[in-house]
Simulated scan of single mutants.
Amino acid sequence: MHALFVCSRNRLRSPTAEAIFSSWPGIETASAGTAPDAEERVSSDHIRWADVIVVMERSHKARLAKQFGDSLKGKKIVCLDIPDKYAFMQPELIALLEQRAAPFLRT
């Protein structure tokens, strides 16, 4: 399974998710951001590669729909509703990610 994690700037939430789920068996991970100044900006290559797209906020899902429209057809998109208030690898963020994303990442 290819899991793409998306947040705004690809600096805190999505890289944390990419790191913690990368060791799960049967899962390959990547992360990207929707903002113009994201460390890694989400691209059509990311969308094609992903089996599941995990966004942190509803606004990320809306931006993906606006930018990639038809490319998202048939893609599983999950919104975790995790606000941008956590540091990279913060234990509370890890706990939220494991609780909310894990059910969608079972192979």
Results as ranks from 00 to 15, higher is better:
M1A: 10
A3P: 03
L4I: 07
V6E: 06
S8A: 12
R9T: 13
S14D: 06
P15C: 05
T16N: 00
E18N: 12
E18S: 14
A19V: 08
A19S: 14
F21G: 05
S23R: 13
W24T: 14
P25F: 06
P25D: 07
G26V: 02
I27C: 05
T29S: 13
T34C: 06
D37G: 07
E40H: 10
R41I: 07
V42D: 01
S43A: 10
D45K: 15
I47H: 07
V52S: 15
V52P: 03
I53R: 01
I53P: 03
I53F: 02
V54Y: 06
V54F: 04
M56Q: 11
R58L: 06
H60M: 02
H60Q: 10
R63F: 04
R63G: 05
A65P: 08
A65M: 08
A65S: 07
F68W: 15
G69I: 13
G69M: 07
D70N: 14
S71R: 15
S71G: 03
K73P: 07
G74Q: 11
G74F: 08
V78I: 10
C79W: 10
C79G: 01
C79I: 06
C79H: 02
I82L: 11
Y86F: 12
M89S: 08
Q90T: 14
P91D: 10
E92K: 03
L93E: 01
L93I: 08
A95T: 07
L97F: 04
L97M: 14
R100D: 04
A102F: 08
F104N: 14
R106H: 11
R106E: 13
